[in-house]
Design a binder for these strands. Structure first.
Lengths: 263, 263
DNA sequence: CGTTGCGTTGAGACATTTCAAAATGTGTGG
DNA sequence: CCACACATTTTGAAATGTCTCAACGCAACG
């Protein structure tokens, strides 16, 4: 058993994302990581562009959608970050993922017509909304795009299964190490430093996600600092010994290589 | 931390599944639950039929594929049951799922060209092998089929996330209850009794899957029997009080209704 | 400058694990 | 079909990692 506390901050909800930022996929720095990867010709990217709605930024705590809402769109994070979570009957929350820029959110609602999780901004966040019916139309003519959608989902399955492994076999130290290593590697891929970054989630949210009590998270952080593995001031994290951390995370060898190779 | 023991039984491996049973999808009792659901016309089902390879049965312990094998096909369980598992660097296994007849296995390998898990028969098991390139060709002409593939994956994501919730928030009793309720409901959907059935996995495998030590699983079982919730003789399970079990499982209300409604 | 939210730290409680051993089940070769 | 070897399951007792509860510090904020 872990944290029984819920941390929903604002019941505020943003149903219709309005047009107010005019950026196009072809100018977006994220496009090599995002949906446009699947589209070869500029013309196709422009088509994608047209179906995407770019709304006003979500403020911290605002929901993009709630568990049970009608499934209409998938979303790509443009900037900021989101968390997704489910809750049990008794109202306990389980965070199922943190989502960084270029990552797609909402696809798991595909076959139920309802989102199976809620999505909430952890900081000021911009998203691209892609109406699913339009996306499917576009995918009709673009096998590559279809394929990529499947790939995104299959990656999510793999990640979730690694998470199951973490939750059922790893101890507190290993969980936190895994989490940091994973975050670092995602930051790096997005062009940010993998050595030092800012966590967008609270200790509480981290604990919730990792199946640990807040206090345990805090204790592991101070322990890691004493061992000179990391340096943490609040949410600012500096990774001092990525190798050691990766070793401790003890995941797949392939994930480790990715991070420990010098940046 | 849980069971450190691995239970791989046979390193034997079945690479090429040979033709030896001639059953077609249209005569298969599972087709309403399986891929053919997506195909409206008998002609299309026959096409699907042609690309499916039906091999000799796998014996208990035999592998369908190993983690890291080249991804070539997805598989549907015809009879018997499979488990899929990943393993950490140190060789610890984590079972990621048990698969009953009509369920699809292997889709999560889609985007890496390698299966991210191993799949092993838990008893004598027959599978239908569907070469992925052929499946994609067929899907080209059948939006419904494409959609169903996506649905299968999105369902897997949802299930995995519920599993994450189980692993991070539920205690031993709740985990076992959830597991039994879930199995029962899957059996029912397949036309078997949801009241009494045979577990195809060992206590060890159950523990591994649920993030519990074997001994804990055993203890919970005896406790449940003393409380007249179930009656268990070895792998034969009889569910005496489905309502209580569902309540204890404490998952989503919608899952509970499915089971507790009288059969 | 009190309030509020979040993070840290300590001490004790507790569920589950670990270790050990007995009991039961299963498969195999004679 | 029995007997033996081996695997699995059960049960008990002790060990332990994490949680819970409680208190405190700190920063942001009206």
């Amino acid at each position: 058993m872990t944290s029984k506390l819920n941390l929903r901050q604002t019941p505020v909800r943003q149903a219709n994302v309005r047009q107010c930022t005019n950026v196009s996929c072809k100018d977006c720095s994220l496009s090599p990581l995002c949906l446009p990867t699947a589209l070869r010709f500029e013309e196709d990217i422009i088509n994608l562009d047209h179906i995407i709605k770019r709304g006003r930024p979500l403020k911290k705590g605002e929901h993009l959608f709630l568990e049970g809402d009608a499934f209409t769109s998938v979303f790509a994070v443009r900037s900021g970050s989101l968390k997704t979570y489910t809750s049990t009957n008794e109202g306990e929350e389980q965070i199922t993922g943190f989502h960084l820029p270029s990552e797609l959110v909402g696809l798991s609602g595909m076959d139920t017509d309802h989102y199976p999780v809620s999505a909430q901004a952890m900081e000021t966040t911009m998203v691209c909304e892609i109406p699913f019916d339009k996306l499917e139309e576009l995918a009709l003519e673009h096998p590559q795009l279809r394929r990529q959608l499947m790939c995104v989902m299959s990656k999510e399955i793999r990640d979730d299964q690694q998470m199951m492994l973490l939750l059922s076999k790893k101890n507190a130290d290993e969980r936190i190490a895994t989490f940091l290593v994973n975050l670092a590697s995602r930051f790096r891929r997005r062009g940010f430093s993998s050595q030092s970054f800012r966590l967008s989630m609270s200790r509480n949210e981290m604990g919730n996600y990792l199946g640990l009590a807040v206090e345990t998270v805090s204790r592991v952080f101070t322990r890691f600092q004493k061992q000179d593995l990391i340096h943490a001031v609040g949410k600012e994290i500096e990774i001092l010994d990525p190798q050691a951390l990766s070793r401790m995370a003890g995941g797949k060898a392939r994930d480790q290589i990715e991070l420990t190779s010098v940046h």
